Amino acid sequence: CHSECLGNCSQPDDPTKCVACRNFYLDGRCVETCPPPYYHFQDWRCVNFSFCQDLHHKCKNSRRQGCHQYVIHNNKCIPECPSGYTMNSSNLLCTPCLGPCPKVCHLLEGEKTIDSVTSAQELRGCTVINGSLIINIRGGNNLAAELEANLGLIEEISGYLKIRRSYALVSLSFFRKLRLIRGETLEIGNYSFYALDNQNLRQLWDWSKHNLTITQGKLFFHYNPKLCLSEIHKMEEVSGTKGRQERNDIALKTNGDQASCENELLKFSYIRTSFDKILLRWEPYWPPDFRDLLGFMLFYKEAPYQNVTEFDGQDACGSNSWTVVDIDPPLRSNDPKSQNHPGWLMRGLKPWTQYAIFVKTLVTFSDERRTYGAKSDIIYVQTDATNPSVPLDPISVSNSSSQIILKWKPPSDPNGNITHYLVFWERQAEDSELFELDYCLKGLKLPSRTWSPPFESEDSQKHNQSEYEDSAGECCSCPKTDSQILKELEESSFRKTFEDYLHNVVFVPRKT
């Protein structure tokens, strides 16, 4: 048989008469490798580009789960590009990614509803959504962080984005990388972005840091009482949809009607710091009717980097990364020049730590249904340095008659930039024990000054392991946590139920 035959053949030295091919099969003959313009397919066939392209389009058009959109890589027609490569849609070739590779997620039936953290986790790592997304989240724990972890990498949506009755959302900033909504599939009414009845939605994105392009379709905003109209108009300008909307697409009466839409800028007039305090004062603000001013709200939190936005980490279910302080308005003076500047002394802060701070007014709604208010920009203030805590785990070892090696770990709280350490030492008198000992005694162990690591005695271990207080009263049991108490109650309830079950099964009433 021919060298490319495997198993047997019907005619000697003829690659077209093989029972099976050793390498690849091409047009009725066995070959060692697939010549151009053919590609290896499933490690035994040679196919042309049209064959591989037909497989790709067949799966793409069917949208069946589990099928493969075949691509070409290293002269092979394979189910998908290997790690580190992405497909070129024009020629199906796998090309190296520039940075992290995109991950295209194809949605069944063309859309997916995100109504819980669990459903959001199914899209973790996706960068391109081939379909439409509907966000409908009523509640949950730590929602802002969970949504950002699972949806934060999405850069492109081919269909539309719909935010509907998501009472738990305060902001859409968890879509931190969303840059493009194509609108290839539109919501009824030709809408590519749809926001309806979101009672706590206050911000779409921080438009000073976020760009969003909507290729096709219109915007729809109705019944978002805490979303200011200025935020919607800003989205029109940034996304390129200005002029597409009709009169009733953006409701003037049901958007922002319960919001404090600040239209003035508060400026800080005085800032002073110490290692654990920050004193702030800002310019006074009074609405047209000074009785509408209820006070100020001061927001602050630790910020290692200057990239904080107002609604980071917030949701309507209680999660809030900001510390909020309510401040009463100052006494009002008739003389504008003698107006008191409101302020606040922030206490209990960490030394040498940068804080993000902003302040906003708290006002009631005027009778004319106009909203007044003022808010400052987010500023960054760093507390002063102070003395560091003591170095940890000092170790001293003498390696000769004239040297001592000293080692330690950095302090747990540096409280500033540590530039150097101060080492103090003092000579001590020799131990009298060394002169009084009889060095001729056998088995004498000389006193040693070398360091030995501390260890816990058996008594201390027994005390720590004991669940009861000892007789001397030195140790006591740790208080039980809520989960331990709940577990004990469940076990007790189970024992009672099981005992009742045994009584009912074992003891049967005697027939009379």
Rank of each mutant, 00 (worst) to 15 (best):
R138T: 03
L107R: 07
W344P: 01
T213V: 14
L151T: 05
D384S: 02
S333W: 14
F290P: 09
L331S: 09
Y194F: 12
A251G: 14
G125L: 07
L392A: 06
R165A: 11
P351E: 04
C228I: 01
Y300H: 05
E264L: 13
F175L: 09
R176A: 05
S116P: 01
Q314F: 15
R164F: 14
S158H: 03
L349H: 00
L169W: 02
Q203H: 01
K234L: 04
A259R: 08
S119L: 10
S402M: 09
N141K: 08
L362P: 15
N200P: 02
H210W: 03
F365L: 08
Y372D: 07
F290Q: 04
I214W: 05
G373S: 13
R369G: 05
R244C: 08
S402A: 09
L143H: 02
Y167Q: 14
W322K: 00
A316R: 15
C317D: 02
K337Y: 15
Y372N: 15
T185P: 12
I250N: 10
D315P: 05
L143R: 06
T215Y: 06
S333Y: 04
V324A: 15
G183Y: 01
K112P: 04
G348T: 15
L161Q: 00
T113M: 12
E109I: 04
I135M: 04
S173H: 12
A303D: 02
L266M: 05
S402F: 11
G139T: 04
S260L: 12
D315M: 14
V325T: 14
S400D: 13
R179E: 03
G313I: 13
T213A: 09
G243M: 12
L279P: 00
F174A: 09
M346R: 02
K242H: 14
P288L: 12
I181L: 10
R182S: 13
L229V: 15
W408S: 01
D377H: 04
E122D: 05
R244G: 11
P391M: 03
E302M: 02
T113I: 05
Q354W: 13
G318V: 03
Y372R: 01
F268R: 00
N340L: 11
L266G: 02
H106L: 08
R370H: 02
C228G: 05
D315Y: 11
K360L: 15
E236K: 14
E237G: 04
S171T: 07
M297W: 15
K226T: 06
P304N: 14
T185H: 13
L280C: 15
S192A: 01
E146S: 02
Q203V: 05
Q199F: 14
L201D: 00
S376N: 01
P351D: 02
I163H: 00
L151Y: 01
Y191T: 12
E109F: 02
N198L: 05
T213C: 07
T118M: 05
C126I: 01
A316V: 03
I214Y: 04
R164C: 15
S321G: 08
G125S: 11
T254K: 13
S333C: 09
I154R: 00
Q199E: 13
V359K: 01
P330S: 11
G110W: 06
G159I: 00
P225E: 14
F268L: 03
L204T: 10
G343E: 02
Y194Q: 08
S333P: 05
T353V: 05
N190K: 15
F299L: 11
I327H: 03
L219V: 07
L204A: 14
L153G: 14
P388N: 01
Y380M: 06
C126V: 02
V238C: 02
L265V: 13
N307T: 05
S260Y: 09
L229F: 15
T215S: 06
E231K: 14
Y380V: 13
G217S: 05
A144Q: 15
E236M: 04
K234P: 04
L349A: 13
M346L: 10
H341E: 05
V104T: 06
N255Y: 07
E262C: 13
P351K: 11
W408A: 00
N307G: 03
V397S: 08
T273Q: 05
L406F: 15
A385R: 12
L107S: 07
L172V: 09
T386S: 12
R202K: 12
K162R: 06
K162V: 11
T364L: 01
S158P: 00
L294F: 10
F296Q: 10
S173G: 08
G183I: 02
N399C: 02
L186D: 15
A145M: 12
V128Q: 00
I250A: 15
K407T: 12
L108Q: 10
K209Y: 13
K301G: 03
G343K: 13
L298M: 14
I327A: 07
G159K: 01
S274H: 09
V128C: 06
Q354I: 14
A316P: 13
Q199M: 11
R281K: 06
K407S: 11
L161W: 00
V381E: 12
D326C: 03
R370V: 10
L229Y: 11
V324K: 02
P329H: 04
G243E: 13
P287S: 13
A251T: 13
G256A: 15
D377R: 09
F358A: 14
D326L: 02
S402G: 01
R347Y: 10
V117M: 12
T273P: 14
P410H: 09
N136L: 15
L266W: 01
V325P: 00
P411D: 01
S376T: 13
G373V: 11
K103E: 14
P330R: 15
Y191H: 03
E237P: 08
R347N: 07
V128E: 01
K218A: 06
N211V: 08
I163T: 06
L227R: 00
N141S: 12
P411S: 14
R281N: 11
A145I: 04
V381Y: 04
M346Y: 01
P288G: 06
I378N: 01
G373R: 08
Q339C: 12
S333F: 15
I378P: 03
N340S: 08
K360R: 12
A195C: 09
L349T: 03
G189L: 13
S274P: 00
G295M: 14
Y305E: 04
I114R: 00
E156K: 07
Q339V: 11
I327D: 01
N224H: 10
T361R: 04
F311I: 15
V104Y: 10
W205K: 11
A168V: 09
E146K: 13
T273E: 04
E236T: 15
G318Q: 09
K301A: 05
